[in-house]
């Protein structure tokens, strides 16, 4: 029930946004993340964007995982 899915903000009018969620454009409220910009990804839960996806942190995680799993397990 706490499922939230990432979607890209494609248009923004005040606190109402069109968000591309897996190829479907949904009307989403930006009430909780008013600072979200067009082009950014937000986590969508029951019609509301609940958080902006932090791209830097996302890239950092993949970098750390690749370092962790790189090379033989000794």
């Amino acid at each position: 029930m706490c499922l939230s899915v990432p979607g890209k903000v494609v248009e923004k009018k005040g606190l109402a946004a069109d968000v591309d969620v897996g190829g479907t454009i949904r009307k989403i409220s930006l009430k909780f993340v008013p600072e979200a910009k067009v082009g950014e990804y937000v986590l969508v839960h029951t019609g509301f964007a609940m958080q902006i996806v932090d791209e830097e942190e996302a890239n950092e995680m993949m970098k750390l995982l690749k370092e962790l799993t790189d090379g033989p397990v000794s």
Binding site: M1, C2, H45, T46, G47, F48
Partner: peptide, 9 residues
Amino acid sequence: VGFETTTPT
């Protein structure tokens, strides 16, 4: 019904 994810909505 729901936890803190849902209650703000």
